[in-house]
Simulated scan of single mutants.
Amino acid sequence: MTSSSGPGINGQQPVAAAGALLWRRRKGRLEVAMIHRPRYDDWSWPKGKLDPGETWAGAAVREVEEETGLVARLGMPLPRAVYPLPRGDLKEVRYWAAEAIGGSGALDHEVDDVRWMTDAQAFGRLTHVRDGLQLQALVDAERRGLLQTWPLLVVRHAEAIARGKWDGPDHDRPLDAEGSARAEVLAPLIAAYGITRVLSSPAERCMATVSAFAKSQHIAVRGKGGLSEEGYAEDPGKAIKHVEKALTRAEATVICTHRPLLPAMLTRLADQALPGSAALSTLTDLVEDGLQKGEALVCQVIRRGAEAKIATVERHRV
């Protein structure tokens, strides 16, 4: 899954929206949260249009909180919905499975009821047939043991001042205006996945890429020499060890680093991908292609340590 959207009618971009299917287990049964909107008298999933400059993932979390009063942590991506609006435009809605990690539960004025239902009850209550696609994918993931995941994000630092235009030590080379703007965009995107641990190369351009997120969540950025270009040149194995430690901890983590380290780190992640999965294919391709500057790669992982398996991979690009 990428952050780009395909062309709509007459070459125009579709109206972009995002949402999530909140799920929980109660007395051993899977339940999902459905919303009722009195304006349309329909039962559906919380969703809404992206604000200007907003990411899909950030919009999904914002809309869930606005419509249900609950703070969501995004999990695996679910099938998107693309359908025509009454005026003839297309609307594209991207969805994620999500768990509630906070919030008051106070309802927005557009929603007058939020109900937790079993999957059978939800299928029977859905107003729009198209909304069944996301529910079926969530149920299938639950049956395969893939729904309960934790996130591991790998971020390549955003655009920095060119080496030829910087007189100081390369370690201190800062982000340029474009890179600083990207760091601000990344903050709510990273937050959407409930990240609680931030690792970074000590280089200024890496630390600055994740600092806006870290400050917004009051989390310290842990500078790790093994994630720097210099540290990698001295001992390439340290970068891989950081990946392995993250898989062992199974804590929601983001790692920010440099291009030269990515092939080794992504190869190690590919080793943990589910055999034959799209996640494995994406990671394998990225070993050669790499990440764009300022790109966030989101791996949803089941289990931990040697038993960890990457179930899904998303690319959030500039």
Score class of each variant (00 low, 15 high):
H242A: 07
G225F: 14
L227I: 02
I255H: 07
A233Y: 00
A246E: 00
A270S: 14
V221Y: 01
G231F: 10
H258E: 03
M265E: 02
L247K: 02
G225M: 11
I240L: 08
G225D: 09
A239W: 01
K215A: 15
T257Y: 11
L262Q: 11
L266S: 12
S216F: 01
S277W: 00
A239S: 06
K224N: 06
I240R: 01
T282A: 14
A239K: 01
A264V: 09
A220K: 10
L262P: 12
Q217L: 06
D235R: 14
A250H: 13
G223S: 11
A273I: 10
G231C: 03
C256V: 15
L261I: 12
C256P: 07
K215S: 13
I219Y: 04
K224I: 11
I219G: 01
T248P: 01
L269M: 14
H258R: 12
L262C: 13
K245V: 12
D271M: 04
L280K: 07
A239E: 00
M265K: 11
K245L: 11
Q217R: 15
T253Q: 11
H218D: 14
A220N: 07
E251Y: 04
L269F: 09
M265W: 03
V254M: 13
A233C: 02
E230H: 10
K238P: 00
V243L: 12
S277P: 12
A233M: 02
S216I: 03
K245P: 00
F213Y: 15
V243C: 13
